[in-house]
Amino acid sequence: MTTYHIIFFILVGTIIFAIDQKREYFPVPIILLLVGVALSYVPFFEQVLLTEKMIMHGFLPALLFISAYQLPLKDLKKYYGTFIALSTIGMLLTAFLLAVLIYTTVGISLSIGFVGALLIASILTPTDPVSTVNILKTSTKRDELADVVEGESLLNDGTSIVLFTVVAGIFSNQKSFHIGSFISEFLWVSIGGVLVGLIFGYILSKVIFWLNHREYQVMVSIVLAYGSFLVAEHIGVSGVLATVTSGLILSYEIDITSQKRRPDYLNGFWENINPIVLSILFIVMGLEATDLLKISDFWAMFVIFILSLLAREAILLIMFKLLPNLHNHFKTKDVHLMTWCGIKGTMSIALLLMFKDQYSGHEDSIISLTIGAIMLSMVIQSLTIYPLSKRN
């Protein structure tokens, strides 16, 4: 990807963001994705590639940090148990149920074994609220519901990486599955990531308030977002959870230090970074997706997309009955909306590219089916969130 490509993508993003200021009916990220698909047929963009490292080390820390930093702490305190339950037990149950459904339907027809089905499920389970949270808040006027969707997504990204790594290793015959080793690895990666985020977040948030110059404070916040991620990944724990935790710690420190008034310069910087990152990321995702799709398997992609919704709905209904914070503050019909808001996005693409780059040999069909289901989720769910939420 050259400088010319990057500047062009930012220009396109600027135009689309400017045209669609309300972002109600047509979420900007999805428009950018479709622009990327269209640009894939232009020779000038043939050499543009999206890799797992570009997403994980370039785009993802910024997007996660922004979401964590802006998540209202009152909702975090109120629903932290719900967030943890949905992003761990709920996500694992959803992945297993989806794998069973894929294996007993599409898997039989296309000769995909259960481990292959579980691999697809592990990629499709993490959710991405980037395209939906603003729409949900605008259409329903219920910020609390949108924040629950966002909080679940922030934490389940970390769970999804652990699950994917174990399943991909089994699929590639690199290691056998043992429940004890899986639990210990999951706890190490998850708790380790949170601890790194806590340490980085506490120390650097103190530094931010100690510095007198706004420019330096912004620079330290960048170090916090990316440094926590890179250090966590280097020692083998979850960089995703480290960045999320560090963003939450900074948000907390600002609330208790600044009488709940967020510094305009920090908000302004990260709010300006967000559309730039989204513009580049989603356009390049569209370019990459075109090369991975096999249109002949469209029927199977659509079936997997429907099954992913059914699996999420079933587990959310169970969790709704078990978690007091959910059934005391929301209605059953809200579960349907939460299901539809569980769009596959950035993390799913990153995991798929990780599999493609590190594990894949001759499993192009799995890659094609998975990217197809991701694309269907992003387009269909995003474009229908507004009318469905207005009816809710």
Rank of each mutant, 00 (worst) to 15 (best):
L293D: 14
L198N: 02
V106K: 07
N156I: 02
V48G: 08
G113S: 05
F17G: 13
S160P: 08
I385W: 01
L204I: 04
V133P: 01
M54D: 14
P72I: 04
L64P: 14
L353G: 12
A146K: 00
V223D: 04
T104P: 08
H213S: 13
G247H: 03
L118D: 09
F65V: 06
V277K: 13
V166E: 07
I349K: 00
S389W: 00
A85G: 12
F302R: 11
S131T: 11
S205D: 00
F114S: 11
L281H: 09
V284A: 15
S153A: 15
P387L: 04
W270Q: 02
T127M: 00
Y79E: 06
N392I: 13
V167R: 00
A146L: 00
L241C: 01
E185M: 06
P27L: 06
V162Q: 03
N328M: 08
G169W: 03
H329G: 10
I249G: 04
L278A: 11
S348C: 01
T82H: 14
L97A: 09
G116A: 03
T332M: 06
Q21A: 12
N156R: 04
L266D: 10
L145W: 00
L119H: 02
E288C: 09
G81V: 08
P126Q: 07
V207R: 05
I10K: 13
V303D: 01
Y103E: 14
G201L: 00
W340T: 05
L211T: 13
E144G: 04
L110G: 01
S377N: 05
P27C: 06
T127E: 05
V37S: 02
F229G: 04
E288D: 14
I66S: 10
F59M: 12
L250Q: 06
I203Y: 06
L73C: 00
Y25V: 08
A232T: 06
L155Q: 12
T94Y: 00
S246M: 01
L76P: 06
M301A: 03
I343P: 05
P275L: 09
G151A: 15
L376G: 05
R312K: 13
G239S: 06
S131A: 10
V277D: 10
I349Q: 01
K77H: 07
Y216T: 12
R391K: 15
T14F: 12
V207A: 14
D264I: 13
I306F: 08
F320V: 08
L145A: 02
S139E: 15
S172Y: 05
I222S: 00
G180N: 13
L307I: 08
L76R: 11
G268E: 11
A68E: 03
I374P: 11
S184I: 15
H362P: 02
G36M: 07
G193R: 00
S258A: 10
S246K: 01
A289C: 09
E150C: 11
Y103K: 15
N156Y: 02
A242W: 09
V149Y: 10
E313D: 13
P72H: 08
T88K: 08
L32P: 07
S365N: 12
I295P: 01
V133A: 09
K141C: 07
N325C: 08
F83E: 10
L71D: 06
A168V: 09
V196N: 04
E215K: 05
